[in-house]
Design a protein around this nucleic acid. Structure first.
Length: 455
RNA sequence: GAGGGCGUAGCUCAGUAGGUUAGAGCGACAGUUUGUGGCACUGUAGGCCGUGGGUUCGAGACCCAUCGUUCUCCCCA
């Protein structure tokens, strides 16, 4: 038998890791709920059809598909052979696979809204904290199974939603004590740039090229634009666009000059300004950075877009989101605009761990270990232990009668702060010896006072 | 999908130019110490050197393949 292992890109989480992760989940969840979002859960698997074509060509390749059952059924052999040929040719076939693992939380949410729009009260605000799966090649900060925490509002055009979601980001990261900046841009600005550069149809090529700027540098981006038939004047314009710098206000001014009276550009700037101005009054503007190089890969975004970056950390974005005007139309229900954000918990964990930002209080463990000094003594001790447990004090008893040495070491390794000794002497006196392991101090407490002892 | 690094004890790693019985630290276990831990000392257990093939008188080391892992690119949280 080979050594046991787990699939590539997946992880087991030990007690301390789970507790730290729970701290992140609880922090985010409590902020979501404070802002009026309600929970939703959707299945780990969706119909393949629901997911395909929603994440772009690259995304489709990264969807984990689930093999159908019953492929060994001889009566279906013809269909299955035909399906297999399609799969081998790089297509999908429902004869082979008709379900897939969730790739993100946004599309399943859109599907849910489309299915239930008759029953939902709009604006509908939901949050969702669940794992997603991607058949990506794992590397630093990238896993094949990871959690997303999403909050979305659908059924409202108001920019107040964007304002509110930014506040969610700020408050959550403040509570996590993780310094971040929130980059903000508008797809309309990018659309405006594309129009000024020759046409809307260039938007996708343009955003893909721009998105790479901080990785490959301007020269390479220029090369890519050249390959995509941007002429010299257009390349020049993009260069001036990307070189915009300064404070948020200065950047926006420069951008307004560059895009002139392009309608999308004007609208995009207006929306951006609205949100930035709003957060001057909340004092959260210090976190906001207008960044016109921000593009976001997902093509369903239509308005303001966000990305959260941890300050001074070698890590890709730890959150992102934006406005999508018509996501549910993918599922046949039109005119439900929405806006949402996502937290990348696994990356947040990695950054916090690296920077040592977890409060020590997240480690919960047993408070009191009751020593086992023999059958009769243990029975008395067990009764005392149950009293403490009734007070919600975490206790456990060493399961075997062992030498002190061994029981002490167990407590020490597990980080248990107190031990309780009840031996023959204590039983006859109806008392208990409590020892604080870190200070070494030891006191005798009568059974009747034990439940009131301050551990 | 493309390209690099690394696989030796439970963990972290040595292993010199290919040479006889593969080492250390930590951890585990036992004892010194059968009602007082952390420290110290002593001892014990634990290795198909990832797997398969090849080169060689001889391979942990060199070559090929394969699997695993990790990082980078693409893309993304």
């Amino acid at each position: 038998m080979s050594k046991p292992s787990i699939p590539q890109g997946t992880r087991d989480f030990n007690a301390s890791t789970v507790q730290k992760r729970q701290f992140i989940f609880q922090t985010i969840r409590s902020v979501f709920e404070t802002y009026g979002f309600q929970p939703l859960e959707t299945p780990a698997m969706e119909n393949l059809e629901t997911l395909m074509g929603k994440y772009g060509e690259e995304g489709d390749k990264l969807i984990f598909k689930i093999l159908n059952n019953g492929l060994d059924n001889p009566q279906k052999k013809a269909q299955i052979d035909e399906g297999l040929d399609k799969v081998l040719a790089g297509k999908n076939s429902t004869a082979i696979t008709e379900r897939a693992l969730r790739y993100d939380l946004t599309i399943p949410f859109a599907r849910y809204v489309a299915m239930n729009h008759g029953q939902l009260t709009f604006p509908f605000k939901r949050y969702q904290i669940q794992p997603v799966w991607r058949a990506d090649r794992p590397q630093k900060g990238r896993y094949r199974e990871f959690y997303q925490c999403d909050a979305d509002v659908v059924g409202s055009d108001s920019l107040l939603n964007e304002v509110d979601l930014i506040a969610v980001y700020v408050k959550a990261f403040e509570q996590l004590n993780l310094p971040v900046e929130i980059k903000i841009n508008n797809r309309k600005i990018l659309m405006g740039l594309a129009q000024v550069c020759g046409g809307e149809e260039k938007l996708i090529d343009l955003t893909i090229a721009i998105d790479k700027l901080d990785k490959i540098g301007w020269e390479k981006v220029k090369e890519e634009l050249n390959n995509k038939d941007f002429n010299v004047a257009q390349q020049d314009l993009v260069e001036r666009y990307l070189n915009i710098s300064g404070t948020n206000a200065e950047k926006i001014n420069a951008l307004a000059n560059l895009l002139g009276d392009n309608e999308n550009g004007k609208k995009g700037i207006e929306e951006l300004n609205y949100v930035l101005d709003y957060h001057i009054s909340t004092g959260m503007n210090q976190y906001l950075v207008a960044d016109f190089t921000l593009a976001r890969g997902l093509n369903y975004y239509t308005g303001l877009i966000f990305e959260v970056k941890a300050i001074d950390a070698q890590m890709g974005s730890i959150g992102g989101g934006g406005r999508y005007n018509d996501l549910t139309s993918l599922f046949g229900v039109a005119n439900i605009p929405g806006v949402g954000i996502s937290f990348g918990v696994d990356r947040i964990y990695d950054v916090m761990e690296e920077k040592n930002l977890f409060p020590t209080s997240v480690d919960h463990t047993t408070q009191v270990l009751f020593f086992n000094l023999g059958e009769a003594e243990a029975k008395v001790a067990y009764g005392q232990m149950m009293e403490l447990r009734a007070k919600k004090i975490a206790c456990e008893m060493y399961p075997e009668k062992s030498k002190f040495d061994k029981q002490f070491k167990y407590a020490e390794k597990k980080g248990i702060p107190y031990i309780a000794i009840i031996g023959t002497e204590e039983v006859s006196k109806k008392e208990c010896t409590i020892k604080n392991l870190s200070s070494g101090t030891q006191t005798n407490i009568s059974f009747s006072d034990l439940a009131g002892f301050q551990f």
